[in-house]
Design a protein around this nucleic acid. Structure first.
Length: 278
DNA sequence: AAGTACCCCAACCGCACACCT
DNA sequence: AAGGTGTGCGGTTGGGGTACT
């Protein structure tokens, strides 16, 4: 037996929200809050809407301080960096961008950023790796394939190590940020939601992550991503990126001693453990 | 000017998890 | 401990708008 639907789909209104509906929902929540029960909320207000629909409308459009469109370069960078490291965890990515919703970021990624990053090189890459990943790709979701493509782009054809599970292998400047990310993400797993401030509010992390000049480590993924996103003549061989040439020897030593030769299944399994690909 | 293709994004769907009883 | 229910999330869709032919 499946679970009961949250509302009567047949009788409930679907489609775009009218200004009147928006007004009712906004006014009620601002005065009374959600009451901790979205399912019951539309009935209280007299809205013929599904509770989930009300929740979505509030979270994505009606709640205060929501920003739409006009993503800055800095926001692009954050989204791209996080997507490469954690995949399509839109809610986590959105938590780092005040005023942005997961839905907004997801749409932005799918319609614009993805094309910028993957666009020109995807066909070649697919051809290049078809033989290797053919078997595994049959069972991979499209987002998993995207991440795999990004992974391959960031590591080059001969590289079989995991970007995700081996932080020591991440490009240097990125490590500063991702270590903080990893720490915070694991804490977020344990703590109640909203118990922690977004990463960008942490001065140390922010200064490390966003400083684009000074340190030697600033020949970096951030800069390379920037080139990918904003260079008009966007024809870059990712395996040539400076940040990826700077993998430290210690990490490579670890790889030599610990890793097997490239096996698509190994790599995909590795991703599966980190990202829950399927 | 009309038809078609493509893009963008708001909204829906279904699954998984958390919480409650 | 187990089942029921609400919530959160990521994936997908549908339709309006725009660009192209």
């Amino acid at each position: 037996m499946g679970r009961a639907p949250c509302c009567d789909k047949a009788s409930v209104k679907k489609g775009p929200w009218s200004p009147e509906e928006d007004g009712k929902l906004k006014a009620y929540i601002e005065e009374h809050g959600t009451g901790g029960n979205w399912i019951a909320l539309p009935h209280k207000i007299g809205l013929n809407r599904c509770g989930k629909s009300c929740r979505l409308r509030w979270l994505n459009y009606l709640r205060p301080n929501i920003k739409h469109g006009g993503f800055s370069e800095e926001e692009d960078m954050i989204i791209c960096n996080l997507y490469v490291s954690i995949g399509s965890r839109w809610s986590i990515i959105a938590a780092q961008l005040p005023g942005r919703t997961d839905n907004d970021i997801k749409n932005y990624w799918n319609t614009k950023l993805k094309k910028k990053l993957l666009g020109s090189s995807v066909p070649q890459l697919q051809e290049q790796y078809n033989g290797r990943v053919e078997q595994s790709s049959k069972t991979l979701s499209s987002s998993a394939m995207e991440r795999l493509q990004l992974h391959m782009q960031l590591h080059g054809p001969q590289s079989s190590f995991s970007l995700y599970s081996n932080p020591a292998l991440w490009p240097k400047p990125y490590t500063v940020y991702t270590n903080a990310m990893a720490t915070e993400l694991s804490l977020r797993e344990l703590l109640p939601k909203n118990a922690m401030a977004p990463i960008h509010e942490s001065p140390n992390v922010q200064s490390n992550f966003f400083s684009s000049s000074s340190s030697s480590s600033s020949s970096n993924l951030e800069g390379d991503l920037h080139d990918l996103l904003y260079d008009k003549d966007n024809v870059i061989n990712l395996s040539e990126l400076d940040c990826l040439k700077e993998m430290n020897e210690e990490a490579m030593g670890w790889w030599d001693s610990a890793a097997a030769p490239l096996q698509p299944n190994f790599m995909l399994q590795d991703y599966g453990q980190g990202f829950d690909l399927q």
